[in-house]
Amino acid sequence: MFVFVVVAAVFAVLFGLGVLRDRRRFSNAVYLGLAVSFLGLGLLAGIDEAPHGVAETVMVVGLLVLALGPVALAGLLCANGVKMVRKEGRRPANLLSLLAGLGIFGVMGLMAAAFATGSQTLGIVVATLLMILGYVSFLFLCFIGYAFLYGRMRIRRDADYVVVLGSGLIGGRRVPPLLASRLERGREVYETLARRREVDRTPVLITSGGQGPDEQLPESHAMADYLMERGFPADRIVREDRSRTTEENMLFSKAVMEAERPGSECVIVTNNFHAFRAALMARKAEVNGQVVGSPTAAYFWPSATIREFAAVFLQYKAVNLGICGSLILLGGLALAFTG
Rank of each mutant, 00 (worst) to 15 (best):
D48Q: 02
V292K: 05
P51W: 14
N94D: 05
A275R: 08
S137E: 09
F143E: 01
L165E: 01
A147C: 06
L122C: 01
A224F: 11
A310R: 00
I328R: 04
R239M: 15
S326G: 12
V319G: 01
V125T: 05
V13W: 14
E184N: 15
A234Q: 03
L165I: 00
G145V: 02
I124D: 05
A234R: 08
F313C: 06
V312L: 04
A8T: 12
G18L: 06
S303V: 11
A67K: 00
I104A: 06
F138A: 08
L330N: 11
P176D: 15
M84T: 10
F38T: 11
A35L: 11
R174S: 15
R230D: 06
F143P: 01
N320K: 10
E265P: 00
M1S: 10
S294H: 09
L165K: 00
L96S: 07
G166K: 05
P213K: 13
F273D: 04
G118L: 13
A285S: 01
V54R: 04
P262W: 06
S167D: 02
L32R: 10
T57D: 04
N271W: 01
L335T: 07
Y226S: 09
G42P: 12
A8G: 14
A127I: 08
A113L: 15
G151L: 05
S294R: 06
F276Q: 08
E308V: 00
K284G: 03
V36M: 15
A234S: 08
L149G: 02
V82H: 02
V19K: 10
V65R: 02
V162M: 04
G40M: 13
F313A: 07
A336Y: 15
E247P: 02
I206K: 02
A311M: 04
S181R: 09
